[in-house]
Design a protein around this nucleic acid. Structure first.
Lengths: 253, 253
DNA sequence: ACAAAAGTGTTTCCTCTACACCCATGG
DNA sequence: CCATGGGTGTAGAGGAAACACTTTTGT
């Protein structure tokens, strides 16, 4: 096969972490954005990323971007989608066309705390970013990308144990519930949530309890399953995946 | 951004259609493969595809491949995954590395009938192809790709109306059930299947009936919904996707 | 009449939901 | 002893699975 002139393959990453909202104090999704210092879209915020190094796998490139912008390694990393519309950089620029393979990642808030925020890197509230968040549009088609990543995260947390990737080794069921509530933006019944989680056997009690809570001390739990990879090369025969996927609920339709 | 030497972006497509199995006569999944006439993997079967034309969108490229190999337009087309392992062509070849964005498609059997089968194109039974089917491995990492596409199709048919893409304008509920049975490889209770499909309101009766059946004439139905696109640019605010997709069953976990 | 599939009814089981209620700790 | 969340119990609604039974055609 011949090389294609005027075509660049880039890898970008949507990096999610949970932090309190600056106004309400409620736990919400944040992500780091990078201010563009060159045309096109100079001055606008964009997802961190860069051209694919020919020596790197796609996921490796995503990890590298993550390390570069936050200094961290992800606790979950999944390919989101390949975006390749001809006009996705606005008009086709002189430098040619860019196809982006986008990944999305989850990092833990305790680690995000000590993340090194570079000069043109800034953490922002996911739902208040870009045109959909009432702010200036992100560069390229990154508004669409971010919305799609949010949709995937919010769908997938419903049928996959990825919520665990937001938590430290030991955690209470209340903390796990707060992750679900923050991501899906709706409150859950603590009693029913507890039963569903325990029935799924994705967590196991450590036997220890959290002290100093001004109420009955809650039991501590740990992960009882590995957070599943959606890498096609690692998927077993019986298990499908997403969902891309995006995966989705139940029944026929 | 600068161009990357030694890196080609290709688009391949997994094209599914349903036909009777040559031995058992039961409805099964088939797909067209292309015999490679050049190194690497000369003589081996491969998924149809080719390098991305800089003037084409990714989906456009997939459609072009489909038209070239079968002469047809798909009734369903969805991006599957971007495969980019450094060594996915075996060793890194002289021509350099190839990253493939893979799509999967559904075409109708009545159309597949009159599909033009070229010299090095052959329709084969999906589950009997490649190393997993007990035959010679497919070229590149196409065994993995095909298995992933099959998993996605089999998962997605459970929660999305894509089964309709295998059928003509008018169809019986038995025909729709046979599509589900052929794809998932398990039999379904006709009574319960009927109720689930009707409750989902994805089909509507045409008022007409199918005659000449050696039994009570079944009612004919038509699609009552568009088969949803999973293109991120077309996804609405409320609906997630896979899916990735691949999406997946219900409940927490 | 009989076979064979269409289509309806019914029972059982299981899960999800809502919400009442008791438990254990800090102040 | 009171407030606060942790944790358990339970009754009702709804859906899925299994399967009996009736309907309508061709032969």
């Amino acid at each position: 096969m011949t090389e294609q002139r005027g075509l660049t393959l880039a890898v970008s990453t949507v990096i999610f972490a949970l932090r309190p909202h600056p106004d309400t104090g409620r736990l919400t999704l944040w992500l780091p954005l990078v201010r563009r210092i060159r045309e096109p879209f100079r001055g606008r915020w964009a997802l961190p990323g860069g051209p694919l190094d020919p020596g790197d796998d796609l996921a490796t490139s995503a990890r590298r971007t993550l390390e570069r912008t936050t200094g961290l390694a992800p606790h979950y990393l999944e390919q989101l989608y390949a975006f390749g519309a001809v006009d996705r950089s606005g008009a086709v620029t002189d430098e040619g066309r860019v196809v982006s393979v986008v990944y999305w990642a989850i990092i833990r808030p305790d680690e995000a705390e000590r993340s090194v925020v570079g000069e043109n890197v800034e953490w922002q509230v996911a739902d208040e970013v870009g045109a959909w968040g009432g702010a200036a549009p992100l560069a390229f088609d990154h508004d669409t990308v971010l919305r799609y990543a949010l949709a995937r995260l919010r769908a997938k947390i419903g049928y996959s144990p990825i919520a665990l990737a937001f938590l430290t080794e030991e955690f209470t069921l209340a903390a796990l519930r707060e992750v679900h509530e923050a991501v899906t933006q709706r409150t859950l019944d603590p009693a029913n949530f507890r039963r569903q989680v325990l029935a799924a056997k994705t967590v196991a009690p450590t036997g220890r309890r959290l002290a100093g809570t001004a109420h009955r001390p809650p039991a501590l739990y740990r992960r009882a399953v590995e957070i599943p990879s959606s890498d096609p090369a690692r998927v077993t025969v019986t298990e499908p995946t997403h969902p891309a996927d995006t995966d989705p609920p139940k029944g026929l339709s």
